[in-house]
Amino acid sequence: MLSARSTATVRATLPAVGAAIGDIADLFYEKLFAAHPELLRDLFNRGNQASGDQRRALAGSIAAFATQLVERPGTRPDVMLDRIAHKHASLGVTPEQYEVVHTHLFAAIAEVLGDAVTPEVAAAWDEVYWLMAGSLIAVEERLYAQQGVLAGDVWHTWEVTARVEETEDVATFLLRPAGDTPTPAFRPGQYVSVQVELPDGARQIRQYSLSSAPGSRLRSITVKRVRGEGSPDGEVSRHLHEHTRAGDPLRVSVPYGDLVLDHLDAPLLLASAGIGCTPMLSMLEHLAQEGHSGPVTVVHGDRSPAGHALRADHVRLTEKLPEAEAHFWYETPDAAHPANRTGLVDLADITVRPGTHAYLCGPLPFMRAVRAQLLEAGVRPADVHYEVFGPDLWLASS
């Protein structure tokens, strides 16, 4: 909880800081990478830095955390903090790195706001930062302990046992731990980080959902190739598609992620678009393995049936569940697809049962649209769970 003195100061300065937070984030990253270029090379996603998404996400998370401290004291935005902590844990972030961030963030605040940063203002925002950082460090320590790893030591070498071409731009890689390394446990819906060494020597990291269910030594990730040659956006997916084959080693983290299948006593709705189907396939396979008998509604949107990665599995696993039904929408349908499912996902004629828990994964506009339809249908905001790959630009927990 923020101290009373700092609460008054933060409340008074929040409009000014909020208005400048974008400039502060830009300058912070500039200073951080000038002092520590290895962080941009080997930890931060260069694509998200180039697009500005990471800067916007940082600005949004700080502003949201500070606003909660002053408007709803005694509570924390735990959904936001858990999502950030899971991502940090999958990257191997350590407590010491929060000191590095603090140094350059507060240098940026002082430079952007100038004389407005009095000692009292600096002390109040320092308290905000360490409340947020301390919360994240505590969650990350718990996540490391749950996986039996030391802080930051999340990486293992896995072997690619097979590669399956799902569509022109989507491939599934079947993986197993190299040697006698135990297979780490995971929950349906979680992801792993994959680190590859690129031609310029950078060791870039991206997250990919586990598209298989728990229960086997084998794991699988399904990767969509992101086009854009010469751009840092998609450089890891392109590397995997172009260079990774059966028998190759792959550096993989232990699993993390807060979009996990839960609330099995409630009606479930699994909504995805594009490659966002991967965590939903893991959930469906788990439900089928467990003999789940409750109602499950499967919703998916894609450009075309041919581009719908893992479509056969989507259908097959849904059919294994006695109370499940699948609804697919395609922007460009073919002759075998019903005309009333052409275009974007529309839940208007889908029965959304009372008490439904919904799990969403896909592009941000898709999830915003589906969430709005679910809320209109009576689903509680707290019962809509989602996954964003890359910086979370949507605080859907509000």
Rank of each mutant, 00 (worst) to 15 (best):
A306F: 06
F106W: 11
M1A: 14
D265W: 02
C277F: 13
R11K: 14
P279W: 05
Q190L: 12
V260Y: 11
R72E: 14
D346H: 03
E325S: 14
G92I: 06
S216N: 09
Q146V: 10
G234S: 05
T157Q: 10
L281V: 14
L198W: 13
D346I: 08
Q289D: 12
A326C: 10
R225Y: 00
S304T: 12
A124S: 09
L317T: 10
Q207C: 13
E285S: 10
I275F: 06
M80E: 03
R142P: 06
L347V: 02
I109M: 15
Q190S: 12
Y98P: 00
S282F: 00
V223K: 06
E99G: 05
K224N: 08
L264G: 13
G22R: 11
L175P: 10
D53F: 08
A85T: 04
V296Y: 09
G355K: 06
E319M: 12
R219H: 13
S304R: 09
F173T: 06
I84S: 01
G18V: 02
A213E: 11
V384W: 10
H239A: 08
R371T: 01
G276F: 07
S135M: 09
E168K: 12
P365D: 08
L364R: 09
H385G: 06
G247M: 05
V139Q: 07
A266D: 13
P77D: 00
A335H: 02
E376G: 15
R11P: 02
A25Y: 09
H241F: 11
E165G: 05
A59P: 01
D153R: 15
T222P: 03
N48K: 12
P391F: 03
H286S: 12
A35Q: 10
L81V: 01
V345D: 02
A396S: 15
T244M: 14
S211C: 13
R206C: 11
A85S: 12
D248Q: 04
V254M: 09
G215L: 04
D153Y: 01
N340Q: 15
L287C: 01
A324T: 00
D346P: 01
L136W: 10
G148S: 08
L136Y: 00
A122W: 03
Q68P: 02
R76C: 01
L261N: 00
S398D: 14
A64G: 13
T342F: 06
A124H: 01
A20P: 02
L240F: 12
Q146L: 13
H327E: 04
V93D: 11
K31R: 15
L69C: 08
G47F: 07
A34Q: 13
D302F: 02
P267W: 07
R55I: 03
L321M: 13
P15K: 02
D302C: 14
S193Y: 04
I24A: 08
P95G: 03
V70W: 06
A108R: 09
L43C: 06
G378Y: 10
R245V: 12
V154C: 09
H239Q: 11
H156P: 00
R76A: 15
A288P: 11
E30K: 10
